[in-house]
Amino acid sequence: MSQMIGLLEVLEDFNGRVDVAKVADDLLLELDDLLPAVDAAELLGFLKVDSGDLILTDEGKRFLSRGSSGRKRMLNRILSKTPIFKFVITFIKQHEEAETTKDDVIDFIRREMPDLEAETTFRWLVEWGRYALLLRYDSNSGKIKVVQPTTAQPTASQEGKPQ
């Protein structure tokens, strides 16, 4: 999450378009270390990759211009439309109070998405789901819950970037 936002900010410093090798070089990073952030940003539509160049999209610029509540709102909207979140959220919602356990979700991922590493995917879902106010997870009880839309939407007054 923080890595992805950092990458978008670096792109902004380079006026929105830069060679991926130059970014790695500039940050003293291996290309491999950069890829998770590139993948995440691409999945969310915040950047495009074009023959080795990373390009900040308009959606990416919009994301950067928002304060933290506004960013959460955007991610809430975007992530809830991605196939994996849709799939998992629908599954959790089938349970009473839209709440189930970690083990249950892990079993579901193993069964329905056998190509994915279940534990890693679960951690990823929890991290992004928490940030975007889509999921709540209590690691003590192992309970995971879908946030209902009424509590997921920060009020408009909190949206501006605090300056």
Binding site: S2, Q3, I5, G6, V10, D33
Partner: peptide
Amino acid sequence: DPLTATHL
């Protein structure tokens, strides 16, 4: 890591 540091 350098990206996170940039952001923070």
